[in-house]
Design a protein around this nucleic acid. Structure first.
Lengths: 325, 325
DNA sequence: CCGCTCTCTGCAACCGGTTTCATCGAAGGT
DNA sequence: ACCTTCGATGAAACCGGTTGCAGAGAGCGG
């Protein structure tokens, strides 16, 4: 492993000049610049990140905290984040909170001593807790808004409203929302958006839950679906898959008897029988954007971030005309 | 952010003693030790990892390269790796190769300048390429064996053989293996294990593929299943799910007409109708073990690693007695 | 022709730890 | 009592970069 001193010697200049040639080329005369670059290339010089971090205070790493990886929803998010980091020559430090507020806080704290900033995805902690985490290092939230903290939000609320309009257009007037985990920020937003849209149309909304956002809970929900419901919107894909499973097993036909939709996105929804209407959510983009914006905040290029990424309805087979219409 | 010098001053000792008290307590007298510890606690001292890395040459980070995260198979692996890293106060640097050999090599090289070692999961590169990657930093392979390189292997080969025995016991004598991507190491091993087991029993084995390990390819495979096949073993879960989908859509009953099994593990297999027989694979353990062993190699505690983790048959609804028996 | 400005370069300090080496004092052996 | 041994501590060097400051030289205006 060659060091900057080696490069400097090879090029016949001082360490300072060598460093500047590689970091701030505009400060160095043209011939010197090329000389140093050639020397660096010859030696295969790679700057030592630790040494650089020590002086500059920048580690070139961003932390990413996701609640889980078992839910493939987060896979494209991580991918997007990693791509964005890689493109700017940064590294991604990944941790999993497993939906635990304490673990989440501990991880962010632990990461904070090590990275330039943290991307916190779908956090479960309280607003106050999150605010506190934000004052050590730049922090950016994904899919959660807390005051003026930087955030990238996937607008599944508007998407859910659009989903409701889709159902209304199909003639549905009696719609059930199968809600997600208690205290979930996204769940609250989706439910509120639904309620507003349905009230506007003078239709009926009933809510089941809150429930854990799992396949099994979906199966359970299928059994407890209130009579007369013509359409069901599930907080997320797992609930929707469980509902589909439970309904089918009980002899309820989808979409002939009941229409079903999920208020998020998962490729698996396209592979069921029938395939499930849901949203198109730009998850990968959200991951990439979060990292990009975070780095901008770190660099002082940007003070805060409030980005809302649009989602669209992705109609599939599980939604159809209301029975009797 | 307080530094070691602050702690030393607060405790009334030198930097050297402070450092020793925290890193090598056995070198410091008892009262001094407690004094320094108390001072550190009072100031909330956190050692600067970059500074430490600079002198020790250890970054306290391990790189993890996975082919994808879209396949939830890798989720527990990442989780296990992260837990193991966290427990030993290391960090996990994650990258995704997207099944590209060039990307894989580039990522390992890029990581190598930054981490203490790299865990490379289900690599796609050639043996020679992998050997080359291993000489910069400690490298450990997961689910691939290359010469004497450290490796943790999930023994899905034996598991597949057990799967075959399971089918033989159910009376099947005409079995099809739907094989995975061309050049896949794991696919080769599973196929070989199957062939051996079936030959031993004097049954018939036919192979379909190689195929991309995807749901859609599974649907395609369902249509091309050779006549007379009583049981199908798919290289992985996605192929199995596609097969189930395709067979069901074509009116073939599982398991009454055809038994179906997957030679790996995925929770989704328990949620289909019928649920799909597969393997229990200790994926999380593999991730944790890879990191633990890698760190041991780094520390010189261990020279090489060749671990084979056992898998077991997990019978579900998709396998049943051979028709006509 | 002088002095001023500007460009380019090098010296040396510095970031925050770890570690070698020397020193000092106390305990132990004879 | 004297010398040795050993444990505990501190001073200072070091890891590999970055950067403030100063100085040299060139260019330019007056």
């Amino acid at each position: 492993m060659s060091t900057l001193a080696d490069v400097a010697r090879e090029a016949g200049v001082s360490k300072a000049t060598a460093s500047r040639a590689l970091m701030r080329p505009e400060l160095v005369a043209r011939p010197t610049l090329e000389n140093v670059r050639a020397a660096a290339a010859r030696l295969g010089f790679q700057p030592n990140r630790a040494a650089r971090a020590l002086t500059t205070g920048r580690t070139g790493m961003v932390g990413l905290v996701v609640p889980t990886l078992a839910n493939p929803f987060f896979a494209p998010l991580v991918l997007g984040a990693q791509r964005a980091a890689e493109e700017t020559d940064n590294h991604l430090l990944l941790t999993v909170s497993e939906y635990s507020a304490e673990r989440e806080a501990a991880l962010v704290a632990r990461l904070s001593e090590q990275v330039d900033g943290v991307v916190l995805v779908a956090p479960v902690g309280s607003d106050a807790a999150l605010r506190e985490l934000a004052d050590r290092r730049p922090l950016i939230l994904v899919d959660r808004r807390v005051g003026r903290l930087p955030a990238v939000v996937l607008d599944t609320a508007s998407g859910t409203a659009a989903l409701v309009r889709h159902l209304l257009e199909l003639g549905h007037r009696d719609i059930v929302y199968v809600s997600g985990p208690p205290g979930s920020w996204a769940d609250g937003r989706r439910r509120a958006a639904m309620a507003e849209q349905i009230e506007e149309a003078g239709a009926r909304l009933r809510v089941l839950g809150p429930l854990p956002p799992t396949f099994d809970a979906g199966i359970g929900a299928a059994a407890e679906l209130p009579a007369g419901a013509g359409a069901v919107v599930a907080y997320n894909s797992y609930l929707a898959l469980g509902l589909l499973h439970g309904l089918t097993a009980a002899g309820v036909r989808v979409p002939e008897d009941v229409s079903l939709a999920a208020a998020d996105d998962l490729t698996a929804l396209g592979a069921t029988v029938p395939s499930v209407t849901a949203l198109d959510v730009p998850v990968e983009e959200a991951g990439a954007l979060a990292v990009t914006r975070l780095l901008e905040v770190r660099d002082g290029t940007r003070r805060t971030v409030r980005t809302l990424l649009p989602t669209r309805v992705h109609p599939r087979e599980s939604t159809g005309r209301a029975p009797g219409r």
